[in-house]
């Protein structure tokens, strides 16, 4: 293998991890939410809100505040979702779609130069207003893990990234551990499988579901922040481009396990980064639209393959999508 092709592979893997982290953070959060029996179709809109929040807050107060604010905004949207779907027991699909709509509309509105400028001025008058009109923010800096980053092939992909990539991987490991190796996780999963039984055993079904939706939504907010400050720090309307919905299908692909979500996300990160590499090599340089279809078509194909592989018995949490009520 020549040195040139080795560095090409390293570059591909690095960008697969970089793009895959968008999906990883969102789908790990959604794994937790769905394990409790609630499906959150709102993550697309929550990601958009996380992205716009990170844009404005980064300019006003810097990266750390931006990530925290995106998580907070995500949590607030999650609270709204939980109130409507858990307390009022409304149809989770419709609630999620409405939240996505609100997030997409509100983020587009806040990202418009005339609104972003005013928001920035209100938050921190010391920052020059024109920064908001440029629609850009400084990118998260790379944090190189000195020794390990030099390891051939995987070193650059895993140890020469920004802090949110490491945080995403850590959250996948941590949440997997919590879900499958602790009592908390057992309670959460029992709520998603058989809420009536969990209730009898003394688990507070409503509290668990609220928490699971809020945690998942906060992570979706962070995923949006990563999408902007960690991946593509230039604001355009509809920045998320259905990535939240792709993350939802990755949850199915990883059969509701945060650990498998790592592999699924990086796989899709690879597809996403190919989108930008194929045109560079000639094909589709003029009209990249066919290549841009790839993630959407591959998502559909993946859903079909999962069904074929599991022979129609997809191991979804048994109570997924069903509101719980003590009366019935």
């Amino acid at each position: 293998m020549t040195l040139e092709s080795l560095s090409f592979i390293e570059a591909i893997l690095a960008s697969a991890v970089s793009a895959g982290t968008i999906y990883l953070i969102a789908s790990v959060g959604e794994c937790v939410t769905e394990r409790s029996g609630v499906i959150n179709l709102g993550i697309e809109g929550i990601m958009a809100m996380g992205a716009i929040t990170s844009f404005i807050i980064t300019l006003a107060y810097g990266h750390l505040a931006a990530i925290l604010a995106a998580a907070l905004v995500g949590a607030v949207f999650g609270l709204l979702h939980a109130f409507l779907s858990v307390s009022l027991r409304l149809n989770q699909i419709v609630v999620g779609l409405a939240i996505t709509w609100l997030g997409l509309g509100l983020s587009a509105f806040m990202g418009a130069p005339e609104v972003a400028r005013e928001l920035l001025k209100a938050l921190n008058p010391a920052v020059p207003e024109y920064l908001a009109e440029l629609k850009q923010a400084p990118r998260l800096p790379e944090v190189r893990v000195e020794f390990l980053a030099g390891v051939p092939i995987l070193g650059r992909a895993l140890f020469s990234q920004n802090a949110l990539v490491y945080a995403g991987l850590a959250s996948a490991l941590l949440l997997w551990f919590i879900l499958f190796r602790t009592r908390w996780g057992l309670s959460l999963r029992s709520v998603g499988e058989n809420p009536a039984l969990a209730d009898t055993a003394g688990v507070n079904v409503f509290a668990v579901r609220y928490l699971a939706v809020i945690v998942g939504s906060a992570l979706a907010g962070v995923a949006g922040a990563y999408l902007f400050i960690g991946y593509q720090p230039f604001w355009v309307e509809n920045l998320t481009r259905s990535r939240g919905f792709i993350a939802l299908s990755l949850v199915i692909l990883s059969s509701w396990s945060p650990l498998r979500a790592i592999a699924a996300s990086f796989l899709f990160g690879g597809v996403e980064s190919l989108q930008f590499r194929i045109p560079l090599r000639g094909f589709g340089a003029e009209t990249p639209q066919l290549i841009m279809m790839l993630p959407y078509i591959i998502t559909i194909v993946t859903l079909v393959l999962i069904s074929l592989a599991s022979r129609g018995r997809i191991p979804a949490p048994a109570a997924l999508g069903k509101p719980y009520s003590r009366e019935e």
């Binding site: 259905s242 199915i252 959407y296 559909i300």
Partner: peptide, 21 residues
């Protein structure tokens, strides 16, 4: 195949818009 229609229809939206483009 039991493929979730919410996801497939959304993915096909983008595909059609990109095809028109």
């Amino acid at each position: 195949f039991g493929a979730n229609e919410i996801i497939t229809t959304l993915m096909l939206n983008y595909t059609a818009i990109l095809l028109a483009d």
